[in-house]
Computed example of a mutant assay.
Amino acid sequence: MATRLPLSDTEAMTQRVDLATLMDRLAIDELITRYAVAVDDADWAAYRGLFTTDGRADYRDAGGVAGRAGEVADWLAQTLRSFPVRQLLVVNRRVSIEDLGGYPGDSAEALADYLRPMRTEAGDGSVSGGRYTFVLARTEGGWRLRTVVAHEKWRRARGALSAE
């Protein structure tokens, strides 16, 4: 069995920084997942809670509105009522955390692709896809969304989309 030498101060610090960055990435990933779940479940209180106090969302490129997170949540609640069947899939996440000379900072950006099928009670609906840009800030309560911007790349709409 090999004898393990104690870590140097530099090696120990590097491991702590790497661990902090890893924990930040996991927290950001969880936040983006909670965003998708809040939209799917129409949990607008949870949606509002994901944002900083000055947080904004911009869905204009996908046919929606832009504004403060609370105002956009109200618009989503009204608009998505027409689509009781929906599932927001957020994938291919690329996270960049501010680098403060080797230490993780308090801001980050994540790019993530999305796929969003939706269907009305009558069976009409659409499927769209695109990319989100999430700008995040570390707060006393953890990572929060400062801005969310949807960049729709494509949409297919038709009647009687099947759930099968």
Rank of each mutant, 00 (worst) to 15 (best):
A69L: 07
D61F: 00
G102F: 06
D58W: 08
D54I: 00
L136N: 08
N92I: 00
Y35R: 07
D99E: 06
V72W: 03
R68I: 00
I28R: 11
V85T: 14
R93Y: 01
D24I: 02
R60L: 01
M23L: 14
T14S: 12
L26R: 13
G129A: 07
G130Q: 00
L22K: 12
M23G: 02
S8E: 09
L80M: 14
D41V: 02
A108R: 00
G67Y: 12
V85K: 09
L7Q: 15
D41S: 12
V91P: 00
R56Q: 14
G105W: 10
R48F: 03
G70L: 05
R86L: 08
M13W: 08
R116H: 11
Q78C: 01
T79Y: 08
M118L: 12
R56K: 15
L111C: 05
L111N: 09
A20I: 09
I32V: 13
A122P: 03
G63Q: 01
G123V: 07
E11D: 15
G70I: 06
R86S: 12
T33R: 09
G64L: 02
R144T: 04
A46W: 03
R34S: 04
L100A: 13
G125E: 07
E71S: 06
T120W: 07
A20N: 09
F51N: 10
V39W: 04
V37G: 00
L88S: 03
A20M: 10
L50E: 07
T79L: 04
W143C: 05
L80K: 04
G49L: 01
T133E: 05
L76F: 15
Y59H: 11
L76Q: 10
D99N: 12
T133F: 00
A69H: 13
V39H: 05
